[in-house]
């Protein structure tokens, strides 16, 4: 208790920053990919074609029922087996790349629920108006419904992204070097958990707190315009 030594942080700052950069990369990739896939899933869920509805509902319920940390490990170990089955070759993917993939498909389930309620929040008349203008289904969705759904849901999407940013810390379970993974690796080497975990907690707090305040302000602005 007497000998806290925060030089362990300054000495390894560069490595921690690298980790933070990877965390941000995974967050942004999974956000873009997840919102894209999630929107497709939401459209499937709301379409009139039964098998598409079932697929989307099954996908979303599946990923919302299993722990993320288990999915991270399972994909890391199983995805290469599937690729081997398909291609007949051993294809190494690596922990870092595996995490990009896992977070994209996992977060898609959560983003899809948000996009679904976003689409449902658009008045039906808007769709009718789209068709009246001679738009196809695709055009109506792309040009009329989705932009509004997206804007209505922007604060919720961003809040989910903050959750995602925090969840990336779980990749340490497969040895990838995200911000927390970097901290954990230094802890394993230098045996200084108290200094390391405290610092990491403070950094996460500052970033997430600032982001969530920004989202709140954005929410207030959007609410006024609407």
């Amino acid at each position: 208790m007497s000998d806290f030594d925060f030089s362990v942080i300054t000495a390894n700052w560069h490595f921690l920053a690298e980790g933070l950069r990877y965390t941000l990369q995974v967050t942004v990739t999974a956000m873009i990919g997840g919102i894209f896939l999630g929107t497709l899933l939401a459209l499937m869920r709301l379409s009139s074609i039964k098998p598409l509805q079932w697929f989307a509902a099954g996908y979303v319920n599946f990923f919302r029922s299993v722990p993320l940390v288990q999915v991270i490990l399972a994909v890391y170990l199983i995805l290469p087996l599937i690729l081997q089955f398909v291609t007949g070759k051993l294809i190494p993917i690596g922990a870092e790349n595996s995490a990009y993939f896992t977070f994209t498909i996992f977060e898609a389930a959560y983003y899809s629920e948000i996009m679904r309620s976003g689409i449902q929040s658009v008045p039906r008349g808007q769709i009718a108006a789209g068709y009246a203008l001679g738009f196809t289904y695709g055009q109506t969705m792309r040009l009329v419904v989705l932009p509004q759904a997206f804007r209505n849901m922007l604060p919720v999407l961003l809040t989910q992204t903050i959750v995602l940013f925090q969840d990336v810390s779980l990749v340490y379970a497969i040895g990838a070097t995200d911000f927390f993974g970097a901290a954990d690796k230094i802890t394993q080497r230098d045996l200084r958990p108290v200094e390391m975990y405290t610092t990491v907690a403070v950094v996460y707090f500052v970033i997430c707190f600032a982001l969530s305040r920004l989202v709140k302000r954005l929410q207030a602005r959007i609410a006024i315009i609407r």
Binding site: Q166, F180, Y197, T198, V200, F205, C208, S212
Partner: peptide, 12 residues
């Protein structure tokens, strides 16, 4: 408690 990841809270 919302702005620090769960795994880090547990480690703390």
């Amino acid at each position: 408690f919302r702005n620090v990841p769960l795994i880090i809270q547990l480690f703390l």
